[in-house]
Design a protein around this nucleic acid. Sequence first.
DNA 1: TATTGTTATACTCTATAACTATA
DNA 2: TATAGTTATAGAGTATAACAATA
Lengths: 143, 143
Amino acid sequence: MPDAPTELSDDVGFLLSRISGDILRDTNSALQPLGLRARGFSVLSCAAEAGEEYTQRALAARLGLDPSQVVALLDDLVDRGLVERRPGEQDRRTRTVVATAQGRRLHREAVRVVAQARRRYLSVLSEAEVAALRATLTRLAER
Amino acid sequence: MPDAPTELSDDVGFLLSRISGDILRDTNSALQPLGLRARGFSVLSCAAEAGEEYTQRALAARLGLDPSQVVALLDDLVDRGLVERRPGEQDRRTRTVVATAQGRRLHREAVRVVAQARRRYLSVLSEAEVAALRATLTRLAER
DNA sequence: TATTGTTATACTCTATAACTATA
DNA sequence: TATAGTTATAGAGTATAACAATA
């Protein structure tokens, strides 16, 4: 019967937190010239990606954030003219989040910059390994 | 030529940060009855695992923390009689970190508790997938 | 001069509870 | 009564610079 490892360096939780921290720093410094950080970028992405329109609540759930955190992140993006809050149509309690034209432009640029940082960061892995990693992480995220 | 994905949900960085956050919360709540959190546990692990003795600097490097953070984490563990700081033998600037008998006992218990939490958290994956994930993360951590 | 542990400080991120307006 | 957004606040985590002791 295989057992979970007792060595810290073999613990998936420890490894995840180390690497997640590294990649976060890497992402933030890549985004800095654009005046964005990782969390702001993820909010902007939800607002800019075609398809769904998110209420703030749905957006928080999607990003794994507390709704109260989303408020501050949105306030900043709104102040900078990158996204808009629109009153919900069926439910007037809700506000729906959409990117402005300027927000979509900045988002495209940010996607480019982040993708480049990822390629660099993940360059020690083969394409197959990256795909397998992405698939595994996606399954964990869907729990 | 394969390109990095532009969808947020396919970004390895985003997935890592979501899952790392989830697993951190899970770990912290599993360790709570023992009066530990993830970071304190990782410091205790370094002190308790046989083999090397770490200076505070080496320990910080191993854990990916700033040396100044290690001071506070150690202060707490020392206050609770779980680890000791011993003056370095060759270099009197350094202090080496070792677990007390009580610290080693608590560490064994914590390892058990964390391993159980991990098995539960990772139960959606096959053993082969967990092994592959661990191997991939290890390679990224060794960059 | 350079490095180790330490202190101080500020900033980011996360968690919680309470308020308001709608449902 | 329950839920959406908001506000306020505290706590955890991270980053940086400076200092004393030692190399």
